[in-house]
């Protein structure tokens, strides 16, 4: 049974709950979320963006740190905010970033 059907005791949950359930039960990527929920990639992407806006998901950058922890001028940071563990993808980075998504408890 897919995450979508099972997330509310067999009753079909909506895409947002299905995506959250997929994350909570160990999905590691959006592709895996699509496979578990049966949702289109477009819907999963929109759901993740919406959950981020709602504060139900948390997205942070993941980079290796600097040798002395002085991140104020780091290329992967934004303004005076550090690149390591900064919230969301930085606007300044041109390359891909690793975004970790963790489910926040309501």
């Amino acid at each position: 049974m897919s995450e979508r059907a099972s997330s509310r005791g067999g009753q079909s949950a909506g895409p947002l709950r299905s995506v959250l359930t997929a994350f909570e039960s160990g999905a590691r990527s959006r592709t895996e979320v699509c496979a578990r929920t049966g949702l289109r990639r477009d819907v999963v992407d929109a759901a993740v963006e919406h959950l981020l806006r709602m504060g139900r998901l948390d997205a942070r950058e993941l980079t290796v740190g600097c040798p002395d922890g002085g991140c104020g001028s780091c290329a992967s940071g934004v303004g005076d905010r550090p690149g390591c563990g900064a919230a969301g993808p930085s606007a300044r980075r041109s390359g891909p970033v690793l975004v970790s998504l963790s489910v926040r408890r309501p």
Binding site: S29, R30, V33, L62, S94, G95, L98, S100, S102, V103
Partner: peptide, 18 residues
């Protein structure tokens, strides 16, 4: 355990600037 998913970006050619 706290759930966590790693969002994998598409591969790209590294940029000299970055």
């Amino acid at each position: 355990q706290e759930p966590l998913v790693l969002d994998l970006p598409a591969y790209q050619r590294p940029t000299l600037r970055l």
